[in-house]
Every structure is written in C-alpha cells, then in structure tokens.
Amino acid sequence: MLKIENIKKTFNKGEVTEKEVIKDLSMTIKDGDFITVIGGNGAGKSTLLNLIAGSLSLDSGKIILDDKDISALKEYERAAFISRVFQDPLSGTCPDLTLAENLSLAKRRGKRHTLKKGITRQEKAEYRELLASLGLDLEGRLDDKVGVLSGGKRQAFTVVMATLVTPKLLLLDEATAALDPKTSKVVLELIEKIVKHDHITTFMITHDMQDALDHGDRLIMMDEGDIILDIAKEEKAKMSINDLLIHFEKASGHRLKSDSLLLS
C-alpha cells in the first residue's frame, strides 16, 4: 500500500517564476489498484509521479510504501520497488545495448550489479520465452541493439523491462502519447495484460479520456496541483467522456481546455 501524506512541491521558490505545483496532496493507493490519472496540461500529474519516483524531492509531506517512509530515498534506491515507463520511447531503454543486455539490467533492478557475466545462457532462454509469450515479435531480436527498434516496439519493450521483476508500483507517464493510434493500442493492451497477470499496482497518467475509462479500476482527475475527483471502479464503468467533463467542471469550477486532453 502506498500512502501519500500532505505532499507539497513548489518550483523556483523565492523567484518571480515561483510556481506551486502540488498543493498539500494526500492519497492512498491500495495494493493491486490500477489507477488512471487525467487532468489538463500543467495540472501537476507528471510532478506527482516524479515525486513518487524520487526524481524530484518533496518540499514537505511523506510518501509511505508498505509502512516504510521512502521520502528520503533517492530515485535509484526507490527503483528497487518502483519502476516506470516514460512518455518518450527513447527514455526507458539503452540504445547501445542489445535487447538481452537491457533485460539483464532490468532483471537486476534494485540489486547489485556485479562483475559476473551479464547474461547467462539460461537467462537468454528465459528472455526468449518471455518475449515469445508476449507476441511482440521480438524473441528473435535478442542480440540486436535496442537502438534499431521502432518507437512502438521500443516502448513495448520498455514495458517488458519495467515489469520483468514485478515492482510494487508501476508508474506510467503518458506512455503511449508519442505513438500512433494503432501502436498505442498494442502497447496499452500489453500493459493491461501484464498488470492483470502480475497484479501490479499501477499509476497510469494518460491524456486520452477514453483510455482512462477503458483501463484500470480507479480514475483520478487532477487540477491545479490537487486531486479533484476520485472515481471508483463501479461508477467509472458507467461513465462516458461527457460525464467526465461534467464532473470536471463541477469539481474544478472551470471548463477543461479541450486542447489539453484527447476527448475521443
């Protein structure tokens, strides 16, 4: 269980450009929750995710994972139990290493990287089997450098890396936004499949309202650095995009700028 308690984040404190981005936000993520997160541009979604991952530091408040306060842990220390997929398909993998070598890195996430041989024959067989079972057509390319993969394949591969060792929490920040609709669908289905199969607690930011409705079992809407709506599974299942927009207007007191979200 992840507990976020009264966290705050202001950028450029004391300068003219000072911006309070996360304002006293609290929430609880239960084990196995698959949360989709939506909100306008600049609502603070990515900042919240970066605070959870530790790539940004908190101004105040606490983040508690399984009764352990992780607020002071560095990003790479939190990576032992939190994994993430970035929006940019190029960000999650190392182009100069092969697929097998990247998987080897991911397999040791949060463990020591020793001077032992990076990949054993047995591991390679495991990787081949895993990739084959996911139907990504990547099992024959274990010895190719990741840099030669297309953006969509690379992002799908990033999802595989992020979940190779089941994390306590999977963070996805608009992971499919940079992909064309068809590839985006493939990657989303892959995420859905792995998350369901391994019961991974997931926090998925998306700019696509339909995706937010179609996936996950809890929907959160952010506005101006706070959570303004938190919709449980049953209610979410009955909602349409229009309902969401109406809810948003009520809760935030303003209309959602239509250019900041994908409405269909």
């Binding site: 991952a53 790539s55 560095k74 990003e75 790479y76 220390e77 990576a79 032992a80 994994s83 993430r84 970035f86 190029l90 960000s91 999650g92 993998t93 190392c94 182009p95 100069d96 290493l97 070598e101 990247n102 080897s104 890195l105 991911a106 040791r108 996430r109 949060g110 463990k111 990287h113 020793t114 001077l115 032992k116 041989k117 990076g118 890396m161």
Partner: peptide
Amino acid sequence: WLFNTEFGYTIVATGSNDKMIRANGVNS
C-alpha cells in the same frame, strides 16, 4: 570482459541514457 558483465552494462547505459539507468536502480 568488463563490458560484458552486469556492472559493465550499467556503465554503457549511463553513457547513453542516465535517466534510464537511475530508473533501473543504479546510482549513476
């Protein structure tokens, strides 16, 4: 030898993408 070890991979990955290597739990 070195660049085919677990540790060697982390050095290579640091050079091409240190955001990724931190996300994979390595102190870059």
